[in-house]
Nucleic acid binder design. Sequence first.
DNA 1: TATGAATGAGCATTCATTCAT
DNA 2: AATGAATGAATGCTCATTCAT
Lengths: 200, 200, 200, 200
Amino acid sequence: MPPESRTFIEEARRAQIIQCAIDVLATEGYARASMARIAKQAKISTGVISYHFGGKRQLLEAVISEVAKMATEMMVPRILAQPTATEGLRAYFESNLEFMRVHRRPLLAMVEIITYTRDGGGPGPYAQQHDTAINDVMRLLEWGHRTGEFRDFDPRSMAIAIRGVVDAVPARLIQDPELDLDLLAREFVALFTLATRRQP
Amino acid sequence: MPPESRTFIEEARRAQIIQCAIDVLATEGYARASMARIAKQAKISTGVISYHFGGKRQLLEAVISEVAKMATEMMVPRILAQPTATEGLRAYFESNLEFMRVHRRPLLAMVEIITYTRDGGGPGPYAQQHDTAINDVMRLLEWGHRTGEFRDFDPRSMAIAIRGVVDAVPARLIQDPELDLDLLAREFVALFTLATRRQP
Amino acid sequence: MPPESRTFIEEARRAQIIQCAIDVLATEGYARASMARIAKQAKISTGVISYHFGGKRQLLEAVISEVAKMATEMMVPRILAQPTATEGLRAYFESNLEFMRVHRRPLLAMVEIITYTRDGGGPGPYAQQHDTAINDVMRLLEWGHRTGEFRDFDPRSMAIAIRGVVDAVPARLIQDPELDLDLLAREFVALFTLATRRQP
Amino acid sequence: MPPESRTFIEEARRAQIIQCAIDVLATEGYARASMARIAKQAKISTGVISYHFGGKRQLLEAVISEVAKMATEMMVPRILAQPTATEGLRAYFESNLEFMRVHRRPLLAMVEIITYTRDGGGPGPYAQQHDTAINDVMRLLEWGHRTGEFRDFDPRSMAIAIRGVVDAVPARLIQDPELDLDLLAREFVALFTLATRRQP
DNA sequence: TATGAATGAGCATTCATTCAT
DNA sequence: AATGAATGAATGCTCATTCAT
């Protein structure tokens, strides 16, 4: 059902359920984020979730969409506004960690879903999310190669490293809620500025 | 039951069950690694696992211990044998990725357990594993600071970055089994050599 | 609510819903004929069905009534128009199978409801439908006994056989939609003409 | 799992569960024959059924197999022992109704499963059961055609009629437990003897 | 009259664990 | 030491029904 055809009340319920799903996922973890627990959090019956989303899978997809939309809206314009690839990379780290600071719980919820949703063996249904992220970084790096700002390195390897560094933060955040994200951002920027710049 | 008081046969059974648990975890994923499946793989009854390990949690802990021991035995001597912190860091990346290449399945099994086992609320029972790893890296970095090889950076942030890069590899490995680990190792070494060295 | 007191619009809605219920039952089967599916077919809300019929049971009863009425209107005059019991029996088979040919979907819908609706313990709520059908046949057979056209047989047993043969056809029709109903009718007529006629 | 490799106790449990499933199916009907109800009847947990049969589908298959085996063992030898097709047909009716008399509840259970198990639209997984039955009757009829005992008729139509008559009995049996099956058998035999014999 | 939203019970299934043998 | 059998709770899901608007 496309969003336009949804009633106001339906939209509100969906938003409420998504919010509760995020809460449960972020605080209890994927394993405990059952329909029953999410419904309880929302003080509704489990049937309501099925009614509005069709099933658990679709609910999780809606959570992913929601958070991804938030992240995209916050980060993409900031990165694209930069005049050079080096500053684009700086903005990439800064806006990523800024997003984690501002929307910590939605971010954690999304990470839970992405990492836990694997049928076994192969990659899960959100693996492409990761692939897309890596490809985005690669495009950023190739920009720097084209302009000559960056030294010669394998863009894929560097992209994997960059995503690895970014993805490491949420796990640390769970471990240590007091983690200084601004410090981290500055250090990561310095790290990759030195690692990517054309060497003198 | 402490290892010394275990009979030879008991020890053999434990090893067999751990091996089968690794197999199932690596090929089927955490979600499908039920006691029944592991028992079936080992061609024994589920009760035997409970008998020897007490429960599923303890079995998974044993798997973690086993793989961590393998990794430590393989990596630590190689790193400590290096004359400088810079070369220690190089050995850190090389031996980590070498371990992934040689013991891919145990590594994947461990990753499955660590990422999937979070009781909710705080960090999971294996978070200390991660903490230990980060502290090890920090000691390596402080060595470089003491000798003056490394530029001035926040050791904790850099350690988080290094672990993030290393931890990103297994996920990529699941996605793309043909991943060139040697290339990755070379690129990571170059990356962090440039990022940590005292700047000219 | 008695039919006379229903408004025209109400009557139209009921007819529409009954038609949609028949469609769903005939094409999807009883198991998938949920209120939601029927409502969707009618492009209305589930509440409307409850509003007009009171509940699912009453809707199904209305379907049964409707189809039974159609069948009666089509068959009874044709049978009663026959001059002899033997020809009445022939008309019974012919008009029954003719009804199946012309109103296949309503017939299948009715069969679905009758066979699937048994509350357990005793016979289902539509057992009387069956009883009525058998009694009708028995009256036809007793007519033939009175006139001396038929040999001496137990009317009840013969009626059960006749209904059994007729009721076997819908199941075959589901299995093989290409079933030749005219051939069947001819064979059934021959069969029971020989089986009921006064023996020489 | 083949029967030989099952332990005595396993076999006993299976038999007990099958018996309870038959009881529930025969007295409560398919719609109420849930795993929970069958388990309750057997005074066990629902998990036991899954443990021994794998799932509901397999349990129902086991019930079908069991009853079909009973029926085959009772009827086939009796029918094959007859010297002529006419007497074979007589034995067919007699042994069918004898089975219904002796094993009424298993028979009803099987009928429930066969009629209720349809996914909608097409025929259910046990439709072949019906097909097989009709083909068996057709072979019997063709025997009579070869020997010249039977008049010229379409074997398929006659087989459908015969099966229809036999299948009509269980439904009547539910309706009227006092039904005289011996009378029915005699009448059916007379009916089809007259209907199939070479006409003078 | 009609709607969409919500309920709550019931469904089959999976699973770690327990225990008598 | 090991087995197979059994438990009971939890999971996602479907459905007829109810009700305020």
